[in-house]
Computed example of a mutant assay.
Amino acid sequence: MKFCYQLAAALLLAGAAGCGTAQVRGIESKIEPTEATVEYPVATVEATNVSYWLFGLLPLYSGNPHRPNTGDYHIFQDLATPENNEEMAARGVVRYRADRLDDVRTTVDWSGWYSLGTVWRKVVRTDAVVMRVHHPE
């Protein structure tokens, strides 16, 4: 019975701590192209997705990569994957009217907390540079 209370408290704590979230943010570059420039960076994009797991085995909450920055999440699905994060970052190409992503780096971090690792947090973070091809006139 004590375990059931701990489990309920862990689920409540995971929900109160900010359920799984998916976020994308970009920082525009100040670099202007010159005549000799073939490609130039337009922005850097960071896509982050957070999910919470029970014992690191059962996904509880996961941010929705198809609706980032909205606080939308899914229950009992693992949507915090490098592939989904790269898709979120790739939307930056459209947002900044660019041509491609460059220097894409993804990290996956796990951390266990609450009563000997009952609830685990998985954070997938993808950083990329949005590049635009310069077409001199």
Rank of each mutant, 00 (worst) to 15 (best):
L11S: 05
Y40F: 15
E86S: 03
V94G: 11
K122D: 02
F55C: 10
L7F: 08
R121L: 05
T44W: 01
L79F: 09
L57K: 11
V108T: 14
V38W: 08
T44S: 11
V124G: 03
G20N: 00
D102W: 06
E83P: 04
I27W: 08
A128K: 02
P68K: 10
H66Y: 12
D103T: 08
D103W: 06
Q23I: 06
L60H: 04
P33Y: 02
G112A: 12
H74D: 12
E83H: 10
A9R: 01
V93F: 03
R100M: 05
A10K: 05
F3Y: 11
R125E: 07
L101R: 01
V42E: 00
A16R: 09
P136L: 06
L57R: 10
Q23T: 07
D127H: 07
E35Y: 14
E87N: 11
A89L: 04
R125M: 12
A22K: 01
V42T: 04
A43S: 15
W53A: 08
R25E: 13
V50S: 03
P136C: 08
G92Q: 02
P68T: 13
L58H: 10
Y114H: 11
P59R: 04
C4G: 10
Y114Q: 08
T37I: 12
R100Q: 08
A16P: 00
A80E: 02
H135E: 13
L54Q: 06
A9V: 08
